[in-house]
Design a protein around this nucleic acid. Sequence first.
RNA 1: GUCCCUAUCGUCUAGCCUGGCCCAGGACACUAGCCUUUCACGCUAGCGACGGGGGUUCAAAUCCCCCUGGGGACGCCA
Length: 466
Amino acid sequence: MPKVVTRFPPSPTGYLHIGGARTALFNWLFARANGGEFVLRIEDTDQARSTPEMTQAIVDGMTWLGLDWDHGPYLQSDRTELYNQHIEKLLASGHAYYCDCTPEQVDAMREKARVDGTKPKYDGTCRSRNLGPGEGHVVRFKAPEGLCAWNDLVKGPMHMDYQEMVDDFVLRRSGGSPMYNLAVVVDDADMGVTHIIRGEDHLSNNPKQMALYNALGYPMPEFGHVPMIFGSDRKKLSKRHGAMSVMDYEKLGFLPEAMVNYLVRLGWGHGDQEVFSREELVKLFTAKGLNSSPSMFDLTKLTSVNAHYIKESPVDALVPLLARYLKDLGLSADDTLLAKIVPLYQPRATTMVEMAEQCAFFLMDDEQLEYDPQAVQKNLKPAAREILADVRTLLTGLDEFSEAALEGALHAFVEQRELKFGMIAQPVRVAITGRSFSPGLYETLAVLGKDKALRRMERALSLPQD
RNA sequence: GUCCCUAUCGUCUAGCCUGGCCCAGGACACUAGCCUUUCACGCUAGCGACGGGGGUUCAAAUCCCCCUGGGGACGCCA
């Protein structure tokens, strides 16, 4: 069996969105799982809509997800010569012809077909006119007749009628640039692509491309058409649903591992297993696990997967990430401190943005700390302040500000005063964090440090009463 | 309009190919309880689906047909 080669061929007319990322992931996994190679190819034959910025954005997205490629990124705009050679070949072999019908004329043909209740298509007017190259001339493919059949990697045995699916579509624009169907087939053949996994919106292109493979005499690759991803309203994923760039999810505080795990489970399964490491995926991925029905993008589930990865990640891996998100909040801290903070939030944060926001009080200047009025009102009533003042005195005299020392001292205090622990915990918590919730009190105090803790308690004591 | 794809809990899915082990399993979400210094985590329990109708069969989520629902494609876009 020849070496497996897959590819991901986005057009640089937009960012790498959720659907594209999943397609890329499936192709990458298929290649890796079979010891094959993965090609990245930028389909920019539509010069009017393609931009270099988008090419970069796609590359960034792939890199973030950890989808590396063995060849490319190739730019189709660099390969016009190759496409033209193939077009000449098709012209010479009688599989293609020149056409001077105007777009308006073609529109009229399609409209007529629509009215007649058949598939709108070019009617072949120029097929036998033997036109040559010229101003305003396109090159059209001579559509074959008969049945087109293949065994889809996802859908199983498929067959379509060439007559129905393929008209004499344009191979080369009057402006001289090649069109999608021609360029993909030429490239895939030229790059030795053996397996093509793509969205099922390409299903109707398949007969066109198969016809081209046949006309060109190239070996047929395997095709697999994965279903679409919908938004929560069962509509095609669009900007309204957050079918944003995958990089937008990075901004929202999602981990790439979580994104990959979520994406792969959207349309692929392996028994009841939910969590897969990259290595496991490479080991376990098969086309057989691919689903044939569409799925919906669910941010809640992505979030829970992300929370899982935050819990499981080593502290060292999260420290630089936390620093990056803190920076967005205008905060910074050295890694030693962050390494103490991260474990406190691993069970609590669902995104890195959340982690940064929630731990911000550790890093703010004491004067900068804002107190939540509701928390103050509820937990810093006069009676609570009296206790808080005593706790402050107690802590002032504490030499060692470790978790264990704090626990010992505070417990003794509570017992001696015959208080419930909750009666000191909440006032202290609000005093040092500004809010009514935080990680455990001893850890929070210990990580915050004696100086800051005392200063904040002092400040809390002087807060206006209402 | 024409052609194509598709149909299991709210969502992602297992099971379907090779009918019986499925009065359908897991995960997320949700609800309740436990744990508890807050918020989380964790643990336990609960809620919750084979779209409808015909067949085939001793037996159908699984096979066949029809209907309905959902989606996609019909470009000098990719």
